[in-house]
Computed example of a mutant assay.
Amino acid sequence: MKQDYNRIALVGIEQEEYDIIKANYSGHIIWHQSIPKIVVKDEVLYMEKSNGIGMLPVDKVVYYGIYDNDFDFISGLAIWRGACYPNAAAMLDCRFKIPCLVKALSHSRFSAPRGFISAGASVTVTGDTVAKWGNWHCGENKHRFTDEWESEFTATTEPYFEGEAVRIMIIGDVYWQIKLEGDSWLKSIHPDDAGFMEVDPELLADTLYIKNVLNMDMIGNDYIVAKDGSKYLLEVNHIPNITRFEDVRQVYLSTVIEWIN
């Protein structure tokens, strides 16, 4: 019996991943590496063609990436309520870092009190403190300070936690723990010496719970494990990096290919 293939859209997928997905799908694909124009009408999603003028109806969307202007696009996908990987409503809830953190901290076993500072306000602290602002990750938009500091942006503040920085990453039912590295106090997944490590069952359980409560298909939770064993949730990545490690990339690709088929 001939399979009735749908028209799918791949948004934000890089060339190498696109080639693999295309080789494993026999239907029509609309592919955009930047945010496309869309229309939702009568519960149908229309997306501009990869090439040429006009829009076509789309049955499924795979979205990967973080763009300056992607919030409205994700909102449109959520309004559509069609088949989207990852879940569009969950991405919408987690796209802005501070609101997502507020939700995650309310569900985490490893929540620590945060502070908040409006843009243009100043705060005086007695201990080593970190301010974070904006909606980017990878160690950007963070400032470590003591005494008085005036913030140019709306920011959260938290104590500086000394310890080992790790990420629990989950795609579907597959998970890893990654040791984050860096030459300064700012740690991320990108340095050459970042790599896999034994999974902490408590951090895994915490991340799984947050993932399920927020209805996310994939997640990357960053934690600090202090020398005394204390653990602290730092932030939630709603679109964690899938290309840094080949094992992660292969799981992502196999998950997407199974989902679209």
Rank of each mutant, 00 (worst) to 15 (best):
Q33M: 11
G220H: 05
I53S: 13
I171M: 03
L234K: 01
K97N: 07
D128S: 13
I219R: 09
D72W: 00
Q177W: 03
F161D: 01
H107I: 06
I13A: 08
C138I: 00
V236S: 07
K227W: 00
P159W: 01
I219S: 07
S118K: 13
N135D: 15
Y25P: 10
F71Y: 12
L186D: 01
S188K: 02
M218Q: 14
D200F: 09
N141V: 00
P99H: 04
R167F: 00
L234A: 01
Q33Y: 12
I168L: 08
R81V: 00
H137C: 07
S188D: 09
H143P: 01
Y64K: 07
E48I: 10
D68L: 06
H190M: 06
D4L: 15
M169K: 02
G54P: 06
D200T: 12
S122M: 03
E258D: 07
N135K: 03
A89E: 12
I210N: 02
P36T: 07
D128R: 14
I170V: 11
P159E: 13
V102Y: 10
D228F: 04
D128K: 12
P201R: 02
I13N: 14
I21P: 12
N51L: 11
T207M: 11
S26A: 10
P36K: 10
N241Q: 10
W149E: 04
N87Y: 00
S151D: 04
E17T: 06
S188Q: 01
N51V: 10
V130L: 08
E158T: 08
V166S: 02
P201C: 03
I239E: 02
V123I: 15
K60P: 04
R81H: 12
A131L: 12
A119T: 01
Q250R: 14
D93V: 00
A131Y: 03
Q33C: 05
T146E: 09
S108T: 05
R95T: 09
P99E: 02
E148N: 15
Y209K: 15
I189Q: 11
S106P: 06
G182R: 07
M1V: 14
S50Q: 13
E246D: 15
I189E: 09
V174P: 01
W176N: 11
T124Q: 11
N215R: 15
A165L: 03
F110V: 03
D93P: 00
S26K: 15
V39C: 14
C84E: 06
I66W: 03
E48M: 13
